[in-house]
Simulated scan of single mutants.
Amino acid sequence: MKRVKIFLIIITIIINGQLAFAIDNGFDYALFKKIEANLMCTDGCGMYLKACSNNTAEEMRKLIKKLLIEGKSEKDIYAYMINIYGEEVMAAPPVSSSFNILAWVTPFLGLLAGALIIYIALDKWVFNKRAKKEPDIEIDEITKAEFDPLLDEEIKKHF
């Protein structure tokens, strides 16, 4: 019975600790996680802030928590982070800028254009030559008449 009580006390402490961590001075933990997933670490490691565990990432997380506690909205936090670190802090480019959209779409358009050029070149050089290939020498009726007796002779020799 004593073990059950100890077990229940431990479970209660764990649950209360998780609730306290989720509330953590009144900021929205789900929003924190969303913001963290949309930002990149700025120390040059190239990792998402969510996955990075170095000092720079920890400082960025503290800054996000501080801004959330102050009551800043998600857009305000993104704007603040872009103001400090530049647009490269965002994991995906903002849709508001047409240059960013163009920068993301252009490589795919380039690949499609290259594939189309290769297909047209192959079609012109390889596939059409096979379809249009004609015999080099045309056999007319006179030539055929000359070779028919020779062909009959050869057939008689071997059969």
Rank of each mutant, 00 (worst) to 15 (best):
I84A: 00
N100F: 09
N16Y: 05
W125R: 03
M1T: 07
A79S: 13
A51Q: 09
E138N: 01
A91S: 14
M90A: 01
D76H: 03
A37G: 09
N54S: 09
K66L: 02
C45R: 10
L67S: 05
L49V: 07
D136R: 15
I69Y: 03
F32G: 00
P93W: 14
I77C: 10
E87V: 06
K75P: 01
D76E: 15
L31S: 08
D152W: 13
S53I: 10
N16G: 13
I6D: 01
R61P: 11
F7D: 04
T42F: 08
I120N: 04
G110C: 13
S97V: 02
I23N: 13
T143C: 03
I6A: 04
Y119A: 01
E88M: 13
L116D: 02
I64R: 05
P107V: 00
K133N: 04
A57C: 12
V126F: 15
R3T: 05
K133I: 02
V89L: 11
A20S: 11
L31T: 07
K34T: 08
Y80F: 09
E134M: 09
M90I: 06
C41M: 08
I9E: 14
L112G: 13
Y48A: 04
F147D: 03
K5F: 11
V89E: 08
L68T: 00
H158F: 02
W104G: 00
I84C: 00
W104Y: 02
G114Y: 05
I82C: 07
D123Y: 04
L63P: 01
K50F: 15
G46D: 06
W104V: 01
A145Q: 13
N128E: 11
C41R: 10
I137S: 00
K2R: 12
R61M: 04
Y78D: 10
P149E: 07
M81Y: 07
A113W: 14
F21I: 06
S73Q: 06
K50S: 14
D28E: 13
L67A: 04
A22S: 09
V95Y: 12
D24V: 00
L116H: 00
N55G: 11
M40Y: 06
W104C: 01
K2C: 05
F99P: 01
K156Q: 01
N16V: 04
